[in-house]
């Protein structure tokens, strides 16, 4: 009768595997990826999932079968052995090889996402945004349309955006606006200067497969490039609204609202410190929005624009 305990182990493991099989169909899975490097991240995720899944099923199957097959039998004596040198070598070398392989294939994508050397240079073609986290909101600073135009005439002027705020820069809380990169055309990369004014925060954008902590006293560069857009001028309200599905031309809250979350605990209202990512179709759309936002910003804070870091 003892051997039936193996059924309990087997059932739990089967349920575990089953959950991973059904979850994607239930919508409990990786959110839609829209960034240029997100595909690489997903690929590496699936690679590790495949390898670990295989070894998971293998070891658990051996365990469950072993419990079934070798459970107590008074007529039998256990095999007397202290081990097997060949087996030990085999099951050291094979996993070691696989693990080294897993490690090596990560390096390029990691470099691509985070290395300083891969960050887009400030210039005419780089979208620059400053994100200043504070309890509990995202203060986001954009260059004014005028400042952006000056970068076109002299790209060197773009160098100081992260360090030097201008009077006429545009401030928008909790809304991260960028424009899309269209495949096959000149890269439209976004360079974020990430800062915090109080405690640790972390900028997490699940649809971009991106996360980066903000650290007091530091400015951390973050880059990404978005390959789809979700923002359009709403015909009824006349405002730029996200959730736009370009394929259907309708508003789709489920797949086209891309949220920005704080992922490093930052105090009381940590859970409510959220924003949204608005991706415009192209630079022109973005500039349209930016002009509107500039006017809004001036209306809100007519006299003293914030110049704090």
């Amino acid at each position: 009768m003892q051997k039936y305990w193996s059924v309990l182990f087997g059932a739990v493991i089967t349920a575990a595997v089953g959950l991973f099989v059904v979850a994607p169909f239930m919508g409990w899975w990786l959110p839609r990826n829209v960034s240029s490097f997100g595909g690489d991240v997903d690929l590496l995720f699936y690679l590790i999932l495949g390898i670990t899944g295989f070894f998971f099923v293998l070891t658990e199957a051996i365990l469950v079968y072993g419990i079934w097959k070798f459970s107590s039998d008074p007529t039998r004596k256990a095999t007397y052995t202290h081990g097997n040198h060949k087996l030990e070598v085999l099951w050291t070398i094979v996993p070691a090889g696989i693990l080294v392989m897993i490690g090596i294939v990560q390096v390029r994508t990691w470099e691509n996402i985070k290395y300083q050397s891969r960050m887009p240079r400030p210039g005419a073609n780089t979208q620059q945004i400053e994100v200043v986290a504070r309890q509990w909101e995202w203060r986001i600073r954009y260059p004014s349309p005028k400042r952006m135009a000056s970068w076109r005439s002299d790209p060197r002027l773009a160098q100081d955006f992260g360090a030097v705020p201008h009077q006429d820069d545009v401030h928008v809380p909790n809304e991260l606006h960028v424009w899309r990169h269209q495949k096959g055309e000149e890269p439209q990369k976004v360079l974020v200067h990430l800062k915090t004014r109080d405690v640790l925060h972390s900028m997490k954008l699940v649809n971009l497969r991106l996360m980066q902590d903000a650290v007091p006293g530091k400015t951390i560069p973050v880059w990404f490039m978005v390959e789809e857009y979700n923002t359009s001028l709403h015909p009824e309200t006349g405002r730029w609204v996200d959730g736009f599905d370009p394929k259907t031309g309708h508003w789709n809250q489920k797949d086209y609202v891309w949220e920005l979350a704080c992922a490093e605990f930052c105090g009381t209202r940590h859970t409510a410190m959220k924003g949204k990512l608005f991706v415009h179709k192209n630079r022109d759309d973005f500039l349209e929005w930016l002009k509107w936002a500039e006017a809004e910003d001036h209306r809100r804070t007519p006299a003293v624009p914030s110049t704090e870091p």
Partner: peptide, 21 residues
């Protein structure tokens, strides 16, 4: 790696044993 080696050795211990569950 060492964690995997340990797991395989536990499985090896069970294999052809006479288990009291």
């Amino acid at each position: 790696l060492p964690s995997a080696v340990k797991t395989f050795n536990w499985l090896g211990t069970i294999w052809q044993g006479n288990l009291t569950l």
